[in-house]
Amino acid sequence: MAARRRPSRPVIDKIVPTAAAAVADVHDGATIMVGGFGTAGIPFELIDALIATGARDLTVVNNNAGNADTGVAALLKTKRVRRIVCSFPRQVDSWVFDALYRTGEIELELVPQGNLAERIRAAGAGIGAFYTPTGYGTQLAEGKETREIAGRRYVLEYPIHADFALIKAQAGDRWGNLVYRKTARNFGPIMAAAAKCTIAQVASVVGLGELDPEAIVTPGIYVHRVVAIADAATPAVAA
């Protein structure tokens, strides 16, 4: 059998030159997953580029609802987010969200954190719905289907799909393989799989083969665009 011919130029090259180019086609009405927990893993530069596109009527999926006036909070401040799906919007520095919520300018879907993660995972894994014990018998399960299975009670939860995922990783290659940094990994790998178009900002782009296949966390099949953004220290969260 003849050896596979190596292409003379990269045929899969997901590297895009700028954050602006990476998010240029985000459309009005899009559902956008944003990685991060607190400030760890928040793709600040991608969010800034998204704000610059002017896309509106957005649904945002993130664990929180923004800290201080940057990142998700800066996006909310533009009033172009119609709805946010998150587990923990209220923080000491979530004043942007708090004000929008109190004036009815943003819709909130509050989801227990593990259900949020599993609904995102289910979307990426092609699961139609799943029964989870989390939330059974609480306000957050009101109106949802329930079922007793082998003596335990469960709530039926549906996947959360997205048009775009904006995530942050430590390093990536032109195939979109990613590795993360410490607890900044958080939602990145599951959001990458759940979106039609996943955009990763990475502190460094490395050559194909430089990432150890045993250590790659997100295989490139889940990632569509990679943009290099020089790493800045993750800012502190107000305590």
């Binding site: 923080q91 993660a117 599993e118 607890t183 502190a236």
Partner: peptide, 29 residues
């Protein structure tokens, strides 16, 4: 302090020898 290494209260912590990192779906599993 390294704000990529935080606890659920978003305070900086450390990782002990033997520590492991994982994504949210694994964590809640």
């Amino acid at each position: 302090e390294d704000f990529d290494l935080i606890n659920a209260g978003k305070q900086p912590v450390t990782a002990l020898p033997g520590a492991s990192y994982f994504h949210h779906a694994d964590s809640f599993a």
